[in-house]
Design a protein around this nucleic acid. Structure first.
Lengths: 342, 342
DNA sequence: ATGAAAGCGCTAACAT
DNA sequence: ATGTTAGCGCTTTCAT
């Protein structure tokens, strides 16, 4: 209200209420106002109340960019995921976000679209924000991005995979073991002519290779493989199943790289009056929230995505606060959920 | 390498490479280094090259918190959505994120979980980051949150709905018109005993009320209503359909508040050998990416979510850059996609 | 085209 | 328990 500002160089900032305004109104020094807001136990009840009143009256919202700059603690966590639309990572992101929010952290979301070029751009953009931690969906392949990440010194958690050489922390499971387990599950169900509908990524590759190995070990003919590349949709699942039915008609079981692909395979099987699971077993991967309730209910590989997200958030926050994480590499495992389709 | 730092109060920052380091290495002043990076056309080729080399050699990544503080431009956009797991907003968020990223903006994601208490907390947290714009999934009800948002002066775009009193910009469509259109569509197909499976939110309410109106207008008996509250799953869709079949057996058409609910309804119908669409028509809402390829393919209301996201991003960025948005209120409409189930 | 000075809004470090 | 001072790393303003 009563301002007498005189300066040669003027450079009014955002115009928003600042800590100084609040302090002046409360009749205290800025640092006391800061403490009243962030560490109320360090301030006498009397002054605390005056500051609180001033905050309420002005509608002051602290500028976290300024705070972050001053304290080198941004209270930001970045997540880098390949895709956000109906992806297996959704549950993980939601859990991550919720856990972070409850402790006053904010989530920045970056999408790499399965492109490593874009991922590198994204990483620089992310590092520039100086987040207190970075969540990665997957394990980062060696390259410029990985190097820069390590150089940044920011705590990193890689997820949804296992590797002997993590950047930092790791919360995942073995894709190889899944390939093995699924093949053996199907074989034990009496299936003889296995197939696989796989995505183009490297994790799908490891599952497929293990699947092939287990099949070879059992003395069965090698599986028919359809690689759908980046097309993880129901549509491509249908097309893939059509191809299997046409080119490898003896097939009696298919392992799909994702639940969506499995749903597509199932759709095509129904379309062609193939009886599931006797004539054709179908398994998915991911156990996205709705496949349990469909008819037939999908037999699939379940990953506890929520647990991964929650744990990752905790680890990142612990590290941001200087604590050491006692078990920085965790295998959360997986389970085969037996339902109607296999 | 050769440092001789002497100061009484030491407070080493993050320890990362700063613009000063780059400038020193390039033999220019910090401001020249800054210009070389941000406005290269203002710097002579000679110095530009020296700065670029220094950046490459040091692996310098600008600290955007510092830059944001100095310029009052964070290059951050915040999105507030109720949920991220298989929600109709996913496509919008992805488009928003992609459009922003291409212009150097980053997305912060906040989840309100359909709770207005949480939404208020979230809003303060978001405002504290001083984003250049805020994306809202839905329109914000009057209240403390809305007031604070308006007071913040940050550009806001509300979406997925229409209102005569937007906070700022608005990109949506009429839920009332959808209720009307769906009812008339079903009626015109010869359906006489309509029902609705709705969620608990206010938008679903408006669709339902309009649906009831249109039915009344046509002289048909009022629809049987099942309110699933916050349970937007396939599971609750199944349960709701079971209830309809038990309590209102004459029902020959159901409009569902979401595609997932519709899928559940369809599942139950199949389970009870109800023939779709003749005996029972089912319509969804949202046209999530996979319902088109299922068997039967779902007849549903399609919203161009991608367009909303892309437009919202553009509007927010324009406003952040001081441009005026010529048409700040847009009705993107909707369409009924006729497929197998109605 | 380049640079010096000032300061964005906050908190860490050092008093008292 | 409260205050003073000096930055955090950058960009604006003004000068050359």
């Amino acid at each position: 209200m009563s301002d007498s500002e005189t300066s040669k160089r003027t450079r009014r900032g955002s115009g928003a209420i600042t800590l100084h305004d609040v302090a002046r109104l409360a009749g205290v020094s800025p640092i006391t106002a800061s403490r009243a807001i962030n560490k109320p136990e360090q301030v006498s009840p009397e002054l605390l109340k005056r500051v609180e009143d001033a905050v309420a009256r002005t509608g002051y919202v602290p500028n976290r960019m300024a705070g972050g700059l001053a304290s080198s603690r941004s209270k930001l966590i970045a997540a880098v995921v390949p895709s956000t639309v109906i992806s297996v990572f959704n549950e993980t992101i939601e859990a991550l976000n919720n856990t972070l929010f409850d402790s006053g952290y904010q989530l920045m979301l970056g999408q790499s679209d399965y492109s490593s070029e874009r991922e590198e751009l994204l990483l620089d953009s992310v590092i520039g924000r100086r987040p207190d931690g970075i969540f990665l969906a997957g394990v980062m392949q060696p390259g410029k991005g990985r190097t820069r990440l390590m150089a940044s010194g920011i705590p990193v958690v890689e997820t949804w995979d296992l590797t002997p050489t993590p950047i930092d922390m790791l919360i995942g499971f073995s894709h190889k073991d899944i390939g093995l387990a699924v093949a053996n599950y199907l074989i034990q169900k009496g299936k003889k002519h296995l197939a696989v509908i796989r995505a183009g990524d490297e994790r799908a590759d490891r599952r497929t290779v293990a699947y092939q190995e287990a099949i070879a070990q059992a003395g069965l003919p090698p599986p028919f493989v359809v690689n759908v590349g980046g097309e993880r949709s129901i549509h491509s699942g249908r097309a893939a199943m059509a191809k299997i039915l046409a080119d490898a008609p003896k097939t009696d079981a298919v392992f799909c790289s994702s639940d969506l692909l499995a749903l597509g395979a199932l759709t095509e099987a129904r379309h062609q009056n193939i009886e599931v699971p006797n004539q054709m077993a179908v398994m998915g991967f991911g156990d996205v929230p709705f496949v349990a309730d469909m008819l037939p209910a999908l037999t699939t590989v379940r990953i506890n995505g929520g647990k991964i997200g929650q744990l990752a958030a905790q680890y990142l926050m612990d590290r941001a606060e200087g604590k050491t994480v006692s078990e920085p590499i965790v295998d959360v495992g997986f389970s085969i959920i037996e339902r109607d389709t296999a």
